[in-house]
């Protein structure tokens, strides 16, 4: 039984960045219908913005989170306005949009390396305290991250499923022409969605950075599992992405507890390919 308890606990703690990333990624996938690899760099840049504000400008860690996430949101909007929207307008097909996003991903990643170097960067974290929780340890940072993620996720969920704006997004994703006729400005909505997704990605990167460290490759390492989670969850379902990322987190920590961490990844990747196969014909 301890395995179940431990994996749920550790899984939840470690899944928190993944939950944010999966939800943000899914929003874009849902709205524009293509897989955005550059979303990984959105996470990386979020972490580096936090490092810049926290270490460079000496802001308190908690204070630095907010502007860093907003900057990540702006980066996301910029990538939409300057790269993806022109491409969509030119009629680039979804499979080529992905290649485009991989190109942008490499450009951003190695552009960053040129500026900050390939070495790891560390945040000036607030003092770390350990809390005991039914015999399991968690740091204050992990708990705060988890709480923030829950708040953000609930907000996002509420935004998509309970508000007018959410309805507009869903309408736009299903039928752009129809939505346009009913007076929705798809351009404005898209900018907002890319901003929200970017903020989620930035936060996700910051929290990954808190748990480990910031590195130019971190986004690329996270994007694959993010994509897997979103696809397994079903195309464009924010609800599904939420559930799938929690399940993936728990599953990873379960496999990690009974074997080596790298095997956990291998098992997840194999499972991913099998799920894709089993679902053939059901993707958008």
């Amino acid at each position: 039984m301890w395995i179940v308890r431990d994996s749920i606990f550790i899984g939840l703690l470690e899944a928190s960045p993944l939950i944010l990333a999966a939800m943000g990624f899914t929003l874009i996938y849902y709205l524009n219908g293509f897989i955005n690899f550059a979303y990984g760099e959105n996470m990386t840049f979020g972490a580096y913005f936090a490092v810049m504000l926290n270490v460079g400008f000496g802001l308190n860690f908690y204070v630095a989170i907010v502007p860093a996430a907003l900057l990540a949101g702006c980066l996301s909007v910029a990538s939409y306005l300057f790269i993806f929207r022109p491409a969509l307008n030119r009629g680039v097909k979804p499979s080529e949009m992905i290649i485009l996003s991989v190109g942008l991903s490499f450009m951003l990643r190695y552009g960053l390396v040129l500026f900050v170097g390939a070495e790891n960067a560390y945040l000036n974290e607030p003092p770390i305290g350990f809390y005991n929780f039914m015999g399991l340890g968690a740091t204050n940072l992990q708990l705060i991250a988890l709480i923030l993620v829950i708040i953000f996720a609930l907000n996002l969920y509420w935004l998509i499923y309970k508000t007018n704006f959410g309805e507009v997004i869903r309408g736009l994703a299903n039928n752009e022409d129809l939505a346009q006729v009913s007076g929705i400005n798809p351009h404005k909505v898209s900018v907002k969605v890319w901003f929200i997704a970017g903020v989620a990605g930035g936060l996700s990167g910051i929290f990954s950075g808190v748990f480990a460290l910031a590195n130019p490759q971190m986004g690329w390492n996270l994007i694959l599992i993010t994509i897997m989670v979103s696809i397994v969850a079903g195309v464009g379902s924010v609800r599904g992405a939420l559930v799938a990322s929690i399940v993936a987190g728990i599953l990873t920590s379960f496999i990690t507890l009974i074997s080596k961490p790298l095997y956990a990844e291998v098992v997840l990747l194999v499972a991913f390919i099998l799920i894709l196969w089993q679902r053939r014909g059901k993707m958008a």
Binding site: P86, E96, L100, G103, F106, G111
Partner: peptide, 15 residues
């Protein structure tokens, strides 16, 4: 620099 330019080049070609 190479990988940065590769990325930029790929974006430019596709666009």
């Amino acid at each position: 620099i190479k990988l940065f330019l590769y990325g930029a080049l790929l974006v430019a070609v596709l666009l």
